[in-house]
Amino acid sequence: MNIKKIEERFFRVLMFCSTVIIATTLMLIIFSILYKGLPSVSWEMLTSTPKGGFYFGKGGGVLNAIIGSLYLSLGATFLAFLFGLPLALYMNVHLIKHQKLVNGIRFVLDLLWGVPSIVYGAFGFTIMIFFGIRASLLAGIITVTLFIIPIMVRGMDEVLKSVPRGLLESSLSLGSTQAETSYRVYLKQCIPGVITAILLSFGRAIGDAASILFTTGYTDYIPTSLNQPTATLPLAIFFQLSSPIVEVQNRAYASAVILVTIILIISILARVFSSKFHKNKINF
């Protein structure tokens, strides 16, 4: 057997092993969540807020955390999108001739991406103290927005920067301005990738506990305004998991099942939505 064949076989085995290891780990995680959580998922769990004695294994549910998590993550994803999309487009269309600057921005965003979310939480908390704001939905949304903006912008940036120069030149030579090129051409070409970036950020937003620990607080009630503290699923899981009572611990897993299901539903909806646009994408 020659070297080429050995090399070929080595890499094939390597790829196979990695795939198996990753797939089984994911399956194990999902299986253990479902195994421990599913039996405790009930209608009551989904539709009611904690009642007296909830934290000792009595009646009630985590509706407060479900609603809170949705408010928080949808709000933050929306805000991050509002600022993130124009920034990503600006980097790739307007700043096309300033590659050094763009690479600088990318570098900073990558650094911010690597900062642990607890640091964002601490930063948000410091700002809140400075302005005398207490833990609230609004403070949480702002903190999480800051935390996911680098993820969203870099996600969009990666797809936008793969748009070939020829398409930019075509659009400009038709007399488009840079803004028209951004929103009518680049965005259309990249919608599937942009949606992936939004989803990725949404997943991080709804799943993160550390950034909201100090900023959003926790409560048994469903928030009725932006100024109220708000419960969230990750913290619900965290608090319930640290309880010594088995029923409460199982509810933590049930909450995890709910969290995963929400992410699943939103992902599927977004995919269905994005497939509508996929057909117009040009494969260069």
Binding site: P164, G166, L167, E169, S170, S171, L172, S173, L174, G175, S176, T177, V185, K188, Q189, N280, K281, I282, F284
Partner: peptide, 21 residues
């Protein structure tokens, strides 16, 4: 500059249709 560019149609080495119908 967009006015100037409108006076000229550009045909590139390979086609770059816009991502639309």
């Amino acid at each position: 500059i967009t006015d100037i560019r409108k006076k000229m149609g550009l045909l590139a080495q390979r086609p770059y249709p816009l991502p639309m119908n």
